[in-house]
């Protein structure tokens, strides 16, 4: 197992260096002078231009610049936003909990609904329920989620007036963030109705973000269950006279879960991509909206830092999923 971990980390380090290279090249690939580009239409004097070039190190040879960049990263310096003048890492960390909260709720919803739906569909293969679940899953998988979000807003916020259109909590409430997770903070604040308000703000974005993972998990669970249900040990378990619930719920599900866990883990990247759209639609103050806004504001240091941090998070989570997978499935770590 230890050697397996080392091997995995050995692959991840060069990939991560490659990712830093991409983030580094990104600013230099932008057409035109990076400093002038950041200044936008305001323009600047010769002297200020030279000073900014030196400040960002653009006047040095490219390899030296990359070395300096890596050195900065090693010291936890991910650059400074040119709009707010705050360190990118600090901005990222203030907004990150909002995305984590939304993503966690979405993945929990997707697993809670997708797992049983896929299981029942597999057990009752060919039934009406099976067809409904599979049609629903394929529709969810094909859904343009930015449109789905707008539809939900039209219906639940516009026509029924049940949910707010944007934000994380009503403006009536204010409290200092403790964990950054609004659900927890609103409970801790002890204010009447704050928790309820946080939930109402969270429901629609969660549903929108959960749609694609839910579809993927339901499909994957169904096909994994179908495969496992055809195995000999299931027949043996049935022949022993175990109850059907015990056979499918215990024997089959445990083995079917292995591929499902991988799929759940791989949704992290999907969730980030989905967060970009979901947060933009619902004005959810998280990383996805921040990245889009930064791109539009030409705040390139923020884009660069955010790109790198998001890739790092995705890679770390994928590594953890790989390790978890190897832990529950010895066959993986012993091959190769």
């Amino acid at each position: 197992m230890f050697i397996y971990v080392l091997k995995k980390i050995g692959v991840i380090i060069p990939t991560f260096l490659g990712v830093t290279l991409v983030a580094f090249i990104f600013i230099r690939l932008l057409p035109g002078d990076p400093v002038l580009l950041m200044a936008g239409e305001r323009g600047m004097t010769e002297e200020r231009h030279a000073r900014m070039m030196a400040e960002f190190g653009f006047d040095k040879p490219i390899l030296v610049q990359y070395g300096l960049y890596l050195n900065q990263l090693a010291h936890g310096d991910f650059g400074t936003s040119i709009i707010t003048r705050k360190p990118v890492l600090q901005e990222f960390m203030t907004l990150f909990p909002a995305t984590v909260e939304l993503s966690l709720c979405a993945i929990i919803l997707a697993v809670l609904l997708g797992l049983p739906a896929g299981m029942i569909a597999a057990v009752k293969r060919g039934s009406f329920f099976d067809h409904t679940v599979m049609t629903g899953a394929l529709t969810g998988y094909s859904m343009p989620i930015f449109w789905w979000g707008l539809l939900l807003i039209i219906f639940f916020s516009g026509i029924l007036g049940w949910t707010p259109v944007s934000g994380r909590i009503s403006l009536l409430y204010y409290f200092e963030p403790v964990t950054g997770l609004m659900l927890v903070d609103s409970l801790l604040s002890g204010q009447d109705g704050a928790f309820w308000s946080a939930i109402r703000h969270l429901i629609l974005p969660t549903v929108v973000l959960a749609t694609i993972p839910l579809a993927v998990i339901a499909r994957q669970t169904r096909s994994a269950m179908l495969e496992v249900l055809g195995e000999d040990y299931i027949r043996t378990a049935r022949a022993k006279g175990l109850s059907p619930i015990r056979v499918t719920g215990l024997h089959a599900l445990r083995n079917a879960l292995i591929p499902v866990i991988t799929v759940v883990g791989l949704q992290v990247g999907v969730l980030f991509a989905g967060a970009i759209l979901t947060e933009t639609i619902f004005s959810w103050p998280g990383i996805g909206k921040w990245m889009v806004d930064s791109i539009f504001r030409r705040d390139y240091p923020s884009v660069q830092g955010g790109l790198l941090l998001i890739a790092a998070i995705v890679m770390i989570v994928n590594l953890l999923v790989d390790l978890l997978y190897a832990l529950i499935n010895p066959r993986i770590r012993h091959t190769e």
Binding site: V11, P14, T15, F16, G18, V19, L21, V22, F26, L29, L30, P31, G269, V270, F272, A273, I276, L277, M291, V292, I295, V303, L307, I310, A311, V314, M315
Partner: peptide, 21 residues
């Protein structure tokens, strides 16, 4: 390795940044 690097980024995010370039 090159493909791993591309896959390390969420696809829509990388596409967005590429379009920004």
């Amino acid at each position: 390795r090159l493909m791993d690097i591309i896959l390390a980024f969420p696809s829509l995010l990388l596409a967005l940044v590429l379009v920004a370039i």
